[in-house]
Design a binder for these strands. Structure first.
Lengths: 163, 163
DNA sequence: CTGGTTGCAAAACCTTTGCAAAGTC
DNA sequence: GACTTTGCAAAGGTTTTGCAACCAG
């Protein structure tokens, strides 16, 4: 698949609600699928397929990696799940709602997750200037975080900076 | 490699100037290396390692893919080359100077390349609000392009939109 | 029972690495 | 001649696919 079908984020506030959404589309609630949903509902941040397959280090039963990928794909088509690329590593998956957007530091790889609204003002600027509606859900906004900006400022000045 | 060394963009206005920069660092100007540089100097947009290895569909002699990757890495360390990830495909490589930043449409995958300065105002907003110094050189600004915004507007309204 | 789903194996895709042979300075 | 770089082969990490067995509705 080149582009996963873009479905509007589907709000489900529990595994059972999500399962219901699946059933409405003729999809089934297998054990493996429930496990993925349970993990995502309990997660703090986005998770890799591998961690999901390993049952979050044993806290949940493990399942087959290929099935996890297939389930994530299905859940994404339905609109329950999103994946994000926070760098060069594997893609990371999370519930589609609530919608998070991400800022990632190119230098130290710190990830800051923010609510969609926090970026609305910037989205407005981008729309005005380029006609583009920016989304930082699938690919994050990448740059230098405050700490790394400071660090690079210190280095570039050399030992005699701030005279 | 997790992170390629961040070197300041090195300005070279010709293959020979680039070769000179290489020699200054004790690096050699092999045929394969020159080919990569020639291709990049002649290119309109960023190119994949694979296209480079194939000599741009035969317009240049072809070389080994592994060597192309090694050369791109070297050139990137020196600061002559940058790579950008414009989606799910392979990374794409271009000369580091002039500095381009990219806007990519998540829906139709259209790529708009803009000069760094065009994004300075937005960079300023992001810095003010989040303390982040945004860079759209390595990962682009992703969103919906004007055409796709319009298209999604048409669809969401249904057949009786615009009454 | 019917068709969606799983598990396993294998492949695909992009990128990196080991190593002897070849090339550059 | 010393040291870098190449070409080939093989492996590594992530994701996809084929297919028979399995399970949910």
């Amino acid at each position: 698949m080149t582009t996963t079908h873009r479905s509007p984020a589907l709000v489900a506030d529990s595994v059972e609600a999500a399962v219901e959404a699946l059933r409405e589309r003729g999809l089934r609630a297998s054990a493996a699928r429930r496990l993925v949903l349970e993990a995502l509902f309990g997660a703090e941040g986005p998770l890799s397929a591998e961690r999901l397959a390993e049952g979050l280090e044993g806290r949940l039963p493990r399942s087959d990696l290929a099935s996890v990928y297939r389930n994530l794909e299905t859940l994404e088509e339905v609109g329950l799940v999103r994946h994000v690329h926070l760098g060069h590593g594997p893609g990371l998956y999370a519930l589609a709602a609530p919608e998070h957007e991400y800022l990632v530091c190119e230098s130290c790889h710190a990830v800051r997750s923010v609510a969609k609204e926090e970026l609305d003002e910037i989205r407005g600027q981008v729309l005005e200037r380029f006609g583009f509606e920016a989304r930082f859900t699938h690919f994050p906004l990448v740059g230098l975080c405050p700490d790394c900006i400071e660090e690079s400022r210190d280095h570039e000045g050399g030992p005699n900076a701030h005279p």
